[in-house]
Simulated scan of single mutants.
Amino acid sequence: MAETYVSGVAGRYATALFELARDAGVIDAVKADLERFGALIAESDDLKRLVRSPVFSSEEQERAVAALLAKVGIEGLSANFFKTVAANRRLFTVESIMRGFNELVAAHNGEVTADVTVAQPLSDAHAATLKQALDAMTGKDVKLVVEVDASLLGGLKVKLGSKLVDASLKTKLNSIRTAMKEVR
């Protein structure tokens, strides 16, 4: 398995949390706690402000986070992690940390994410066929993240890692338009 790296301050925190969770055998529990905390941030403007604002001291952030974690039942490694992040005045990076942690978990589980953009929603059969083709191509379990963009007109774009396959009608029409201009 190739090593996955996440960079920056958030990457260092995500890597440390992942390694601690892996060594303790609690990756799934920590992932669930991070998802719960992420959902709390998404639901609460006050929590967003607490997380993102430099106005609050580390002590205020730590107290607020500790009270919130106790209220929602997040404890153990995850709770200690969030408190440490708050104490170190890095709470503003928590969403990036969660993304990095999820990347590390996916790599650990042999999963790859493919960002698929389509002109119309994929049927279950088409999504399954695309997933099977990508699984066979990569030799890994590919998770599809599908986004609908009607401006593509037809076809699809698939981004898998650093590779992008653009088979959209919009791109093909633009290529023809460019070729027609060059002929003149």
Rank of each mutant, 00 (worst) to 15 (best):
Gly154Ile: 08
Asn88Trp: 00
His108Glu: 13
Val148Leu: 08
Asp149Lys: 12
Glu59His: 03
Ala119Thr: 07
Ser57Cys: 04
Asn109Ile: 00
Ala114Tyr: 13
Met98Asp: 13
Lys71His: 13
Glu95Met: 13
Leu144Gly: 13
Val55Trp: 07
Lys157Asn: 10
Glu95Trp: 01
Ala87Glu: 11
Lys71Glu: 15
Ala64Asp: 06
Lys71Ala: 15
Met98His: 13
Asn109Ala: 13
Gly73Phe: 06
Gly76Glu: 02
Gly73Thr: 07
Arg99Lys: 15
Ser53Thr: 05
Thr117Gly: 02
Ala67Gln: 10
Lys83Asn: 03
Ile97Asp: 05
Ala79Thr: 03
Lys159Asn: 11
Phe92Val: 13
Lys48Gln: 15
Leu169Lys: 08
Leu160Ala: 13
Gly73Val: 02
Lys83Gly: 01
Gly155Ile: 08
Ser151Glu: 14
Gly161Lys: 10
Lys71Asp: 15
Val146Asn: 03
Ile74Met: 07
Asn109Tyr: 08
Leu134Phe: 02
Gly139Glu: 11
Arg89Asn: 09
Val65Asn: 05
Lys143Phe: 06
Val118Phe: 12
Glu60His: 06
Val72Trp: 06
Ala127Asp: 02
Ser78Lys: 04
Ser123Gly: 13
Ser162Pro: 11
Glu103Ala: 14
Ala119Met: 12
Asp124Gly: 05
Val146Lys: 04
Glu60Tyr: 00
Val65Ser: 06
Glu62His: 01
Ser58Val: 06
Lys157Met: 15
Lys71Thr: 10
Glu111Trp: 09
Asn102Asp: 13
Leu77Arg: 13
Asp46Tyr: 02
Ala70Trp: 00
Thr129His: 12
Ile74Ser: 01
Leu91Ala: 01
Ala87Gly: 05
His108Phe: 09
Glu103Tyr: 08
Val94Ile: 15
Glu147Val: 14
Asp124Val: 10
Lys157Arg: 15
Leu122Ser: 04
Leu69Thr: 03
Leu160Cys: 14
Gly110Ser: 08
Met98Val: 15
Gln132Phe: 02
Leu122Gly: 05
Ser53Asn: 04
Ala106Gln: 07
Leu144Tyr: 05
Ser162Lys: 14
Val105Tyr: 01
Thr129Val: 11
Val85Ser: 03
Leu134Asn: 07
Val165Met: 15
Ala66Gly: 02
Ser151Leu: 12
Asn102Met: 11
Ser96Glu: 14
Thr117Val: 15
Val158Asp: 06
Lys140Ile: 06
Lys131Asn: 08
Lys71Leu: 08
Gly73Leu: 09
Leu160Gly: 12
Arg63Ile: 01
Thr113Asp: 10
Arg90Thr: 01
Ser44Arg: 10
Leu153Gln: 05
Leu91Thr: 00
Val148Asn: 03
Ala167Ser: 11
Ser162Thr: 15
Thr93Gly: 00
Val146Trp: 04
Asn102Glu: 14
His126Ala: 11
Ser168Val: 03
Gly161His: 08
Gln120Cys: 00
